[in-house]
Design a protein around this nucleic acid. Sequence first.
RNA 1: GGCGAGGUAGCAAAGUGGUAAUGCACUGGUUUGCAAAACCGGUAUGCGCGGGUUCGAUUCCCGCCCUCGCCUCCA
Length: 478
Amino acid sequence: MSRPRLYDTLTRQTRDLHPIDHQRLRFYCCGPTVYGPAHIGNFRTFVAQDVLRRVVELSGTPTLHVRNITDVDDKTIRDSQKAGKSLTDFTRFWTEKFHTDCSALNLLPPHVEPSAVAHIDHQIRMIETLIDRGHAYRAEDGSVYFKVTSYADYGRLSHLEDRELKLGAAQAASAVASDEYGKDSLADFALWKARKEEDGANFWPSPWGEGRPGWHLECSAMTLEYLGETFDLHGGGVDLVFPHHENEIAQSCCATSGQFARHWMHVAHLMVDGGKMSKSLGNLHTLEDLAQRGHSAAEVRWVLLSGHYHQPLNFTFHSLEAARQALQKLAKAEAALRHTAGQSTAPGYDQILAQNWQPGPLSSAWERLLEDLNVPGATGAVFGILNQTKLGSLDPEQALALWQGLHFILAALGIQLPDATSEPEAADVPEEIATLAEQRWQAKLAKDWPAADALRQQIDADGWVIKDRKDGYDVLPK
RNA sequence: GGCGAGGUAGCAAAGUGGUAAUGCACUGGUUUGCAAAACCGGUAUGCGCGGGUUCGAUUCCCGCCCUCGCCUCCA
């Protein structure tokens, strides 16, 4: 089976993705900062990474997937204090919430999910190495900074070279403030932050005094611990390209003799109503918000996958409706195929992987996924093939091949289909509406069409819709 | 200003040097008392604008307009 190809931010080329050890693709994803519920924009990144993992695994290469939890930084410290909780309790709560959401979205759990707080020793050791090698220095207040000028390749990932010369007005304003902390250069970034009053009880001992690690460092320390000096892929949202990933490269390459990540994947942002989502605009949706509005996690996942991961994607409620219809359409096709193929239950991801299922008749969709995770192209191909196929006229063998192919693609996308045979959810119908509906049904049975239609119009005016079945009817909110 | 991404039907979104997948919406037909569902069809002479290359460009090149993101701790 052919190998997946993936766009690489560093070389700006779509390149083959293959494990350097020829066995297991080892990759690291920057995880969430657990100070509140993750929003669907965060999840766009995690869903894209999940599809990557699935495609790699289904193409025949096992993975080692590491995704960290950032449980110490300005925001977690600030908000835990605001909540009157210890940092540990506070971040544990939000970590569990994150896991609940991940599970709802059908994300495969990473093989390792390290916490920053649990790896402070590793981070301290890395700082010591960096100081020894002349890449870092201690400031007067006990903070430690990375010396950007000591790393010649700094800026290669983000293509921001000579950063110091291009500092804008905003940065110049903060220069005064940073000078107080003894940074040699504006571009230098913190490896260790000296303890401050507002940190409360959240500080750790170090050779440079009490304090806590800088944000960028945790990823460098934990990739080294779990993936080694050189590993296959590193990913995150586009906003992490600079400075986070740039700084990670600098730290890791200076502290080890490895290459760090061989390939970089960055997921474009999710927009809402044409703009960036933000708390202040009130358009920062969480899975829970959307669930309350009646949208399933599967629908959200479909929407998050509806654009190529490399393009910004605009989220709207209309897109959630479209997702529901599309999933329903697939579910019906799946049910028809399953019936003809004589199958009873749909297989799970592990089963498809273990039994080495193949895309079969849907290999064109699979090819799209292999080429830089072209999900929209793949789903389009699936629908196209389904449309061209007369599902009713397939023999069991053909149906089975298509059914298996469909499940292979769905497994790659991590899409769980709704139950096509389920009745619409029993909505909470007001008694008066139920009475009217029953009257209409009786009128219909009596073939009193004018009366039946009049009643339906009345029900419609009250915001409800009647849908008849063979031997009954459903009342649904409009 | 620097760097990056993009402008394709009402909305969304693929794609290709040879005349535009797919989803939603809309719409015609079959079916239904009428609807719904289902099934069979239809809907971009056009791919931001202007040039150029080519037998031929939406796809390549040049210029322009517009949108969005990043530029120190936001996925």
